[in-house]
Design a protein around this nucleic acid. Structure first.
Lengths: 150, 150
DNA sequence: CAATTAGATTAGAATAATTATTAAGAGGTA
DNA sequence: TACCTCTTAATAATTATTCTAATCTAATTG
């Protein structure tokens, strides 16, 4: 827990609780999940605090916000460059630690200054493959992904 | 416009208007933008129809839903596999037609059945580079992307 | 210790985005 | 025409997120 001392912000109990919950968490939780988990210990915790804290931590580079789940923002305490594997049925997100070198040829940059990249792999997780979980039916569809929903 | 005949659904005026607006559109519009554009010709058009239609078209594989913009869903009529270049300041999304071969080693698949992938390149577009547009300040932060906001 | 101050927290309201419900309309078909 | 199915439209309902304003806390100063 000492590792947080140097991120340059006031470490209040609420923030520590959130950081503690995120610490080593690879489930890519949503604000709601964080709220639910932390409000156990802090019954007065509000969504505002969760969102405020996440926003602050994001600003400090202590967490990253993920898109990929079209329903809600998800957060990742792992700020090291890595990619994700997304279940299009239950929206589970797994980490991909494989290192890829993908550079965008200057001719395809449209004048953008490139700052990074991120690969989303789509698929169906083991649980969903065996007719499992399937929280919802409308995962993100992106180019390159087969549509398995109809 | 004849090309739509074989997507297997009733081509109502509203749907044609939406398809027509999307046809060749590379701006990756949101539901709201589509609504605004189309409601000019169809003053009675409602958001529900836009969402319903997009959902239907998505099911038929005629459009794909993009994540990448943390604020709202965006839609792409280009269903051919391609990647995207996202401006982290104004959220403009440009197409990347470069073809990459990225396969996920079996050992990293976590038991998922992989169905596709999608690369998000992050960057700052020409307009924003020269202190331009900058609709908003909080683009998605994902691993590998530098944080330019603080 | 009392007062000050900056920042953090809270509860709830407000907004935005999306989805669901339902009734009415349009077109086809027996 | 009566019946059926699909689509639309208006509205309501949900869900996710952000905002507001009052309150609190911790650190600092007098």
């Amino acid at each position: 827990m000492e590792k947080y001392k140097n991120i340059g912000l006031k470490l209040t109990p609420q923030r520590l609780a959130i950081l503690d919950f995120l610490e080593g968490n690879t489930s890519h939780p949503s604000a709601e999940e964080i709220f639910t988990a932390v409000s156990g210990r802090f019954p007065t915790m509000s969504f505002a605090t969760v969102y405020n804290t996440l926003e602050t931590l994001k600003g400090k580079g202590a967490v990253v916000e993920l898109t990929g789940d079209p329903q809600k923002k998800r957060f990742d305490p792992n700020t090291a460059p890595h990619h994700h594997l997304i279940c299009t049925r239950c929206r589970r997100i797994a980490d991909v630690q494989v290192d890829y070198k993908i550079d965008l040829p200057r001719s395809s940059r449209m004048g953008f200054e490139i700052t990074g990249n991120h690969i989303e792999f789509f698929g169906v997780c083991p649980a969903c493959r065996k007719g499992g979980p399937e929280k919802t039916g409308s995962g993100a569809q992106t180019p390159g992904e087969e549509n398995h929903e109809d």
